[in-house]
Write a protein that binds this DNA or RNA. Structure first.
Lengths: 344, 344
DNA sequence: TCGAGGTTTCGAAGCGCTTCGACGATGCGC
DNA sequence: GCGCATCGTCGAAGCGCTTCGAAACCTCGA
């Protein structure tokens, strides 16, 4: 509640000297600075936020736009909002949370009122209304996720295509010959979630390139049951599964396979790729290439802050390379020695 | 980007007239107001946030303090932050998200810089450092959750005691005679999570009052396995289970009981109480008295806004009555007709 | 000793808005 | 028709800070 004027008086200098001493934007004699700092410390001075904003044309606030779709995985998405907030703090920025309907309108509002210096757009759809809005706003914006039309945008995301290719190659190189992908529910794809489609396309392409038999299924409920059945219908010799799906489906996979008398990795290898949940607590943890909220948000917020502070930022797509975490759910299969299988 | 001066010029009135026309704080002739409104609309005028804050001594921002403990259920907690944000918007407030280490320090900062008009404190521990801080801050604050020392505080929470009593009574009244409570992990209790203890104490007290045999167990992992075993050790005739625990433990309960040859509700009735996850997708959905983020946050934010706008608010504890959602996991047991049980 | 050039500090002008006090206009009662 | 209360509007004073331009002060070489 102390004002800069009180600090100035206590230090025996002018207001502007205090301002420069604290901001470091002009050189101040060392002993003067020390006196100012001591006075500020003593009085517990913190600059009045709105006064600073008004005078400096900078709010030190970043808006985080997080719509919540019906089929959204709350935990996963809020992790992104939280990580963004943490990273923003390391740059001295606070975050304004814009959720739900307000994810769109709040962007307009916080940009127009200059409440926010920049915007982080989370949970991006292929055909996202916030893309057009961002273009019209004249407020630095970074997308975490890649929409269909990225013209003029700054986007950050895990390299899902590379993750899909790496998963396929890992299985192929360790001797797997029939690979299935359990993707997301079709509603999720229909809604336009972009990474899901990118992953799927890359998976198929890579399997074709490696000449390996493959199939793709979409869960229709919240378990892996139906998906596994359909996978075996398509590929009776299925020996590897790639998961790019939700936590509930993934967590039921082990039990589903067990019910068929199959076990991981003895009979079937499993890799989870581009997923934002941990499989550490599963009966059998899976090899994982995680969609890491921290990594994505760090990259995004760093870019955003750079755009705000540095003034401007060229449009670009930043793809983060996937990290492979080995948990032992993939083993080498020797050709000619098919795994022993109980009849289910 | 239009300023109030431009609106004033466009409408042919003074700046103050525009301000009063838009805020309604003084009477303005109808045709004048209409002209002002039209001009504002035309120019897409929105008041510059920091200028408004500075002049009006009000930021229209609420800080949401959300620490994230190691054993925190991310999804559950972020739901509270989100609901708070939604409710705040209905009052014209935006929310600043303070997470992690910054949950505490951010409170101090946003209050001292007058960035926030008020604070919502989430995920409250019994012995929460934010209690003392809130008392020292001179910034309206509402706690969602009840710490040990509530002196001078405004707190909102589900009435966990009442939920525990209602769960016990529901089971007792439908003929159950041996009731077990699966509580949270001991780490959670040790950490000081308050509602967990309140629930446990009320459960025991009510069982004693109703003269019904009872036992309490704490899961040690993330499944119900061990808990169920210990419950049956203590109560061989167990016929009712109350869950006040985490989603992973709850979701594994059905399978655990099935492995013993028991089914819900045929052999055992189950009620989940004071939990923030849905059991709708479980193999057998449970009767539930939810810890409803929306209800709690609505009450909390409403109180907070009232304190900000209305100026001041008397300390109080608001306990929200639990709602019983019947999903068929509790049935009536007739004395003398013990349920048929397979040997496991 | 004087002045150029550099360093340090200060004063004042905003930033865009809210709000107080005041002023002119209007309506009313007598 | 005059005085007074009421209504509608305006001007101006801030809110607390940043930042520009300039003043004040130093240092040093000529």
């Amino acid at each position: 509640m102390a004002t800069i004027a009180e600090v100035a008086q206590a230090a025996g200098v002018s207001i502007s000297t205090v301002s420069y001493a604290l901001s470091g934007k002009r050189s101040i004699r060392t002993d003067t600075r020390d006196r100012v700092l001591a006075a500020a410390q003593e009085l517990g001075y913190l600059p009045h936020a709105s006064a600073r904003m008004l005078a400096a044309h900078r709010s030190h606030i970043i808006a985080v736009s997080e719509p919540v779709h019906a089929d959204t995985d709350d935990a996963a998405h809020m992790a992104f909002a939280m990580e963004s907030t943490k990273v923003a703090r390391t740059h001295g920025y606070d975050t304004l949370l814009l959720v739900d309907d307000d994810a769109l309108d709040g962007m307009r509002r916080s940009a127009a009122t200059q409440l926010a210096d920049g915007i982080v757009v989370l949970d991006v759809d292929e055909d996202d209304a916030r893309v057009a809005l961002a273009r019209s706003l004249d407020c630095p914006t970074v997308f975490v996720g890649i929409p269909a039309d990225t013209e003029g945008l700054v986007c950050v995301d895990l390299d899902f295509e590379e993750a899909a290719r790496a998963a396929v190659d890992r299985l192929v190189q360790s001797g797997h010959r029939e690979i299935g992908l359990i993707s997301h529910r079709v509603e999720t794809l229909d809604r336009g979630s972009n990474f899901t489609r990118r992953f799927l396309r890359a998976f198929v392409a890579q399997c074709e390139r490696r000449h390996v038999r493959h199939a793709v299924v979409h869960p229709n409920g919240h378990t892996a049951q139906g998906s596994v059945n359909r996978l075996f219908d398509a590929l009776p010799g299925l020996d590897g599964i790639v998961l790019n799906t939700t936590a509930d489906v993934a967590s039921s996979l082990s039990a589903t396979l067990t019910a068929r008398g199959l076990s991981i990795p003895r009979d079937i290898s499993v890799i989870a790729a581009g997923v934002s949940f941990s499989t550490a607590r599963f009966a059998v943890p899976f090899d994982t290439m995680p969609l890491d909220a921290r990594a994505s948000c760090t990259a995004a917020v760093d870019l955003l802050v750079q755009a705000i502070d540095g003034g401007g930022l060229d449009p670009r797509i930043v793809l983060l390379p996937p990290t492979y975490i080995d948990q032992g759910s993939v083993v080498t299969r020797t050709p000619g020695y098919p795994p022993l299988r109980r009849v289910s």
